[in-house]
């Protein structure tokens, strides 16, 4: 394949992140190559959103140690918009409402910013509307939502769908999808999965955070990782998701009694 494949698109090295005194990521490592889809699963509060937020550059986190490389370059010093213009997209677990900002205008402004960064010509309003209409249609997205303020009064499912519509319009390289499948009905789940699959390609990469194996039936991951207490404790192929679905996370937790076990072997404590 291309020479790009020689180095990962995203590389997370020994990442330690805290908020205040609370250490959340505790030495996370992950490598995501072009063309790959990685699923991250893990119990509530294990640090999944923290991880995607840190990659996207959300303020409020302290990076205690480690690095995040994107296309071989550390991005930890970059502002969120710079990262976005380099091709990082985060579909948020809780999309934000933007009063007074119309969805259509918002998307157009964002796309304009990205296209400028990519050295692409400006789309005319007409071209943009046409493109948007097609993408919205493909996703069965209610056109009325384009005229409304971003996410304001949207249902939970509409918000998630709006995130994927943005993914499809903005066409980034790396998509971080944080529980985009949560709160979707079965039909919507398929539509969203189709949207993500349409995005999938050899020059793209996807990191998908989920609690449910179900979405992985539609979006087949190359890797599944289990994040517990800020660390990836297990990685495997897609059947790992089935195992988790059946058994939960308990069996993967580091035995907290390790020290005692050691003690039991007779070493003095």
């Amino acid at each position: 394949m291309t020479s790009n494949n020689s180095r990962p698109l995203l590389e997370v090295r020994d990442l330690h992140v805290s908020v205040g005194d609370n250490e959340i990521l505790d030495g996370m490592n992950l490598s995501v190559g072009l063309g790959e889809v990685h699923a991250i699963m893990g119990p509530n509060g294990s640090g999944k959103s923290t991880f995607t937020n840190v990659v996207a550059g959300r303020p409020g986190y302290t990076i205690d140690r480690g690095d995040v490389l994107y296309e071989g370059e550390s991005i930890l010093g970059m502002f969120p918009d710079e990262r976005a213009r380099k091709g990082i997209f985060l579909a948020m677990q809780y999309p934000v409402e933007l009063p007074g900002i119309r969805n259509r205008e918002f998307l157009r402004t964002a796309l304009e910013a990205l296209r400028e960064a990519r050295g692409e010509v400006k789309l005319s309003v007409r071209e943009f509307n046409k493109m948007l209409e097609e993408k919205a249609k493909a996703m069965d997205f209610d056109p009325d939502l384009m005229k409304r303020n971003v996410n304001e009064g949207f249902s939970g499912g509409e918000k998630k769908r709006n995130e994927i519509l943005q993914l499809s319009v903005l066409d980034p390289k790396l998509a971080l999808l944080d529980e985009t499948d949560s709160g979707l009905d079965i039909d919507a789940l398929k539509i969203v999965a189709n949207g993500v699959n349409a995005f999938r390609g050899p020059d793209k990469a996807i990191v998908l955070v989920t609690h449910y194996q179900r979405i992985l039936n539609f979006i087949k991951p190359d890797y599944v990782h289990v994040l517990i207490e800020g660390r990836i404790v297990r990685s495997g192929a897609s059947d790992l998701a089935h195992e988790l679905e059946a058994q939960g996370y308990e069996w993967l937790r580091e035995p907290a009694e390790e020290a005692e076990t050691v003690g039991a072997t007779g070493r003095p404590s």
């Binding site: 959300r58 918009d81 964002a110 910013a113 903005l170």
Partner: peptide, 11 residues
């Protein structure tokens, strides 16, 4: 709100 907009590439 700021983060959301900036995450989409807006300065």
């Amino acid at each position: 709100q700021l983060f959301y907009l900036m995450q989409r590439g807006i300065k």
